[in-house]
């Protein structure tokens, strides 16, 4: 295998390869969740892993989100490196007690006695017509909580590389895999490995406007940037990658050269991560701005089922293009 050999792979396969690598590299790692074994995972991420690693490391659980997430925390305390899979972010609310009251607090509440080296993966986001109990974007809401880390891999590299870094982290890490990205296919280095989990990345450089986004919205922003480039507007697209810790240095530096910022977030506007990013821009780059910061967020409704309504409830390319044009053409 040459150093630069590329393979064709989907996001789903990249996550599966990451789990497989972790299981091979560290015998303390195991996967725990509803239907991760025989069924192959509700989004088929873990398909084939049961056959390869056996039922003691690919553990099907009953429908007990709080119970098995807490068991993951306990196993982490007991020296294992569990990967807990929760089907969707909405279901994670059934485990919110364990995630927020236990995983996030144990190290601090115990004065440093007990850390929780746990990884929790879950799907997030809309676009699959799964309506209001399977499609929300609560990763920004989890990012509110000190004691956990919140990752939002958007690219194939991150889908492949964030898990190992998360497992090496001594504290609880939540990984949000966007449902609409699972079938995304592309080229990835055959020897792709661990990536950092605390820095934002500029996915497209530009000088006229900073678009700050993460998750599936990244690709809408990149598509919009391409259209805007055709009209002479150069957009810098920033992929946050992690919502906690939030790498504000990267977007503040970007704004210092573009002087305009647009936040694209599938989560709800009120009290969301977009509001936090906006506040940090006010605190750290107010005098750099030539125009007010703007936001394109999920509409403030529970996610509807009907396709046209679901699309209207989520940030779309057209809105990014229109807003970007208005912002750049306003004379600051």
């Amino acid at each position: 295998m040459s150093k630069n050999e590329m393979i064709q792979i989907t996001y789903r396969e990249a996550v599966r390869e990451a789990i497989r690598e972790a299981l091979r590299r560290d015998e303390r790692v195991f996967l725990l969740g509803e239907d991760v074994g025989r069924y192959g995972g509700c989004f088929a991420v873990s398909k084939g892993l049961l056959e390869e690693f056996g039922p003691e490391r690919i553990i099907d659980t009953p429908l007990s989100e709080s119970g098995f997430t807490g068991a993951g925390i306990g196993a982490a305390l007991g020296g294992m490196r569990p990967i807990v899979e929760i089907m969707t972010v909405n279901f994670s609310l059934l485990a919110a007690d364990q995630i927020i009251n236990n995983a996030a607090t144990f190290l601090h509440m115990s004065g440093g006695c007990f850390n929780v080296p746990l990884v929790i993966r879950m799907s997030t986001g809309g676009g699959k017509q799964l309506a209001a109990q399977h499609s929300h974007s609560l990763e920004g809401w989890y990012a509110h909580i000190p004691g956990i880390k919140v990752l939002t891999p958007a690219t194939l590299e991150d889908a492949r590389g964030m898990l190992w870094s998360a497992l090496e982290d001594p504290d609880p890490v939540l990984i949000f895999e966007h449902q609409s990205l699972l079938n995304m296919e592309g080229q990835l280095l055959a020897n792709a490995g661990a990536v950092d989990i605390d820095r934002a990345q500029i996915r497209r450089p530009g000088s006229d406007l900073s678009v700050i986004t993460y998750g599936a919205s990244l690709f809408k922003a990149l598509e919009a940037a391409e259209i805007l480039a055709g009209e002479g507007i150069e957009v810098e697209v920033i992929d946050l990658r992690a919502l906690r810790p939030l790498d504000d240095a990267t977007f503040l530096t970007s704004i210092a050269s573009t002087h305009r910022a647009l936040i694209v977030d599938e989560g709800w506007r009120s009290g969301g991560i977009s509001a936090e990013i906006c506040a940090r821009i006010m605190e750290g780059a107010f005098y750099e701005l030539d125009a007010p910061v703007e936001r394109i967020c999920g509409a403030e409704v529970p996610m509807p089922y009907a396709k046209h309504l679901e699309e209207a409830a989520m940030p779309q390319v057209e809105a990014i293009v229109t807003t970007a044009k208005r912002m750049v053409r306003s004379n600051g």
């Binding site: 195991f30 807490g70 068991a71 007690d97």
Partner: peptide, 15 residues
């Protein structure tokens, strides 16, 4: 909230 933790600690011992 401690009960699931105990389950997990025991799971780690078993594993």
């Amino acid at each position: 909230c401690g009960l699931p933790l105990a389950v997990g600690l025991a799971l780690a011992d078993k594993m």
